[in-house]
Design a protein around this nucleic acid. Structure first.
Lengths: 142, 142
DNA sequence: GCTTGACTTAGAGCGCGCTCGAAGCCGTAG
DNA sequence: CTACGGCTTCGAGCGCGCTCTAAGTCAAGC
């Protein structure tokens, strides 16, 4: 499989695939006699997994760390698991935050819908985040 | 309230607050005789709401659009509602995607945990995303 | 034989959302 | 009186994750 095919299959651009190889997220692809990259289908699962990490907001430098451990083989399984667990924790937290925000959004939209009255033009449904509420509860000079 | 206080209360930096004013996300704050910004407590709810939009990934240019409508008053309620509804749809989609990823992450971690056997060193649990699966199901030249 | 188009490299550029620096002013505490 | 911290403006700089350009090579189709 050539880079263009891989691009079509993964949704990444060929540019991005080369970039990923350059920085080490993708293994150095074997070149054919005319220096073109040739890919094995197995790369697809790896790229898909990288996609998951990206989607969930893992920075490239962390993906790189994971990638390098993976390349060092089964000795690094523990370390990799730890990375993923830490990441999962962050993702869960982010998810919870988003759900929180979604409720606010719903409330606000509902407010707009029912506003024949001017009573609550806007902001009546604004509520500070949990973290902000805590700060607000304390005096200024804390 | 001065900018430093507001910064402490919102978690934004003073730099960021000035930046937000500059680009129009925050209203021009009245200056005292020595040109320092003075804030009313009501700004807190607005900043909190902006925070929700940011957290949920709304680009600044869209927040700006919303802000400008808001400043134009109650005539723009409908348009604002539409913006928020569209945004909510995106947030929901993103949420679903994250939950999807979380399952993959869980599976992968579980795999690491139970691997006394080498059988599934890694990638055995990698599965393409839904979108990718669809692309993969079709022949290359589609 | 020639055109077309996908590929190669190295490196510059971009869009986003801040973040910081410089140089200077102001007001209060010691 | 002076030192200090916090404020002001304007504009440059940064970290991230790509994204694109330039100049060139190569292989297949007409």
């Amino acid at each position: 499989m050539k880079i263009g095919d891989l691009a079509r299959r993964t949704g990444l651009s060929a540019h991005t695939i080369r970039y990923y190889e350059r920085i080490g997220l993708l293994p150095y692809a074997p070149r054919d006699p005319s220096r073109q990259r040739g890919y094995d289908a197995s790369i697809l699962t790896w790229i898909a997994f990288l996609g998951r990490l990206r989607t969930t907001g893992m920075p490239i430098r962390d993906m790189l760390r994971y990638t390098q451990l993976r390349e060092r083989g089964p000795d690094t399984l523990d370390e990799r698991r730890i990375i993923l667990e830490a990441h999962r924790t962050k993702v869960r937290a982010h998810l919870a935050e988003l759900q929180d925000c979604l409720v606010v959004l719903d409330t606000k939209i509902a407010g707009y819908a029912g506003s024949d009255t001017v009573e609550m033009d806007n902001d009546a449904t604004d509520q500070p985040t949990r973290a902000l509420r805590e700060r607000l509860a304390r005096p200024i000079g804390d």
